[in-house]
Design a protein around this nucleic acid. Structure first.
Length: 294
DNA sequence: CATGGGGGACCA
DNA sequence: TGGTCCCC
């Protein structure tokens, strides 16, 4: 049932869910003997053993990297299992992975609107679910705290000098938080439950970022992998972006990022924020960049 | 040839 | 619709 969003806040709760070395997980589910052993997925094995498109965590310990050829991977890790991507009409056929991703999306969709960003990445708008939880079952009243939620990483926790030391449980459940932080805490509980459910129903692990917009959620999902989740309270944003190289931000990894860096002599996203929107629009056009913060 | 192919977003 | 850019 639809729930009207209160006017008290326009803050959204956005999660970015990123499957851990997804193609490898799909192959390991299909072939359980591969679980726990160094594994990578390759396409086109004719030339130097094929190109790696996914590397499992056991193989990463041996220094195996994506964009190695199969032969190099064997050299770094002789016992590695290389699984071939299916081929259809002479091309690599990623449909089995795409379909496996759909299994995950169908679970995530139970709590919010899903937007598929790629085969193994999903944005999830949990605003309504979080608002509902906050008004009906706020974390401060919870009797049993979900283990998975407790394992969340909270950016900036205990880094602000004037605040007293807090652990994750306290951050998630404190009653004196502002509305935005409480919403994120609810989002973290919902995402933790979803990730457990995904594991139960699909056997796949994933990592997630929980924030107030897509850019920050995406950034956070990659910070603690595999099988972990990271929260970005708005109080941590300034410091986070201050040290974030411009090329690391989605959409600024290419030519636009380079020209921004050169034209304005900035290195971090934080540096960029010191320019007024008008000035940036003067340089790059009125629409360029406005979408980045959605 | 040597990351490679595909997909999404935007634009003219 | 095709071209370009960007990402996985």
């Amino acid at each position: 049932m639809p729930v009207a969003r209160p006017e008290s806040s326009d803050a959204r709760v956005i999660a970015h869910v990123d499957m851990d070395c997804f193609y490898v997980q799909v192959e390991q589910r299909k072939q359980p003997a591969l679980r726990g052993v160094p594994t990578a997925v390759v396409q086109y094995n004719a030339w130097k053993g094929g190109g790696l498109i996914a590397v499992g965590y056991e193989a990463r310990k041996f220094g195996v990297k994506r964009s190695m050829r199969g032969d190099e991977a064997k050299k770094a890790c002789p016992e590695i299992h290389l699984v071939q991507v299916p081929v259809a009409r002479g091309k690599a056929d990623l449909n089995i992975y795409r379909n496996a991703g759909s299994e995950v999306v169908s679970i995530l969709s139970r709590r919010g609107r899903c937007e598929r960003a790629s085969i193994d990445e999903v944005y999830l708008d949990l605003t309504d679910a979080a608002e509902t939880m906050l008004s009906e079952n706020p974390p401060e009243t919870l009797e049993a705290i979900d283990e998975e939620a407790l394992k969340s990483h909270v950016l900036g926790l205990n880094q602000s000098g004037n605040e007293k030391v807090m652990n994750v449980r306290e951050w998630l459940c404190r009653s004196d938080a502002d509305h935005r932080d409480k919403l994120l805490a609810c989002g973290a509980f919902i995402v933790a439950a979803l990730r457990i459910q995904v594991l139960k129903e699909t056997e796949f692990t994933c990592s997630a970022g929980i924030a107030h917009n897509k850019m920050l959620a995406k950034l956070a999902s990659g910070m603690n992998k595999p099988a972990q989740q990271t929260i970005v309270p708005s109080s941590a944003v300034k410091e986070l972006l201050a040290s974030l190289p411009i090329k690391k931000m989605k959409q600024l990894g290419g030519k636009l990022g380079s020209s921004v860096q050169n034209d304005l002599h900035v290195h971090s996203v934080g540096d960029l924020l010191q320019f007024s929107e008008e000035k940036l629009q003067g340089h790059y056009g009125v629409n360029t960049g406005t979408w980045l913060w959605n």
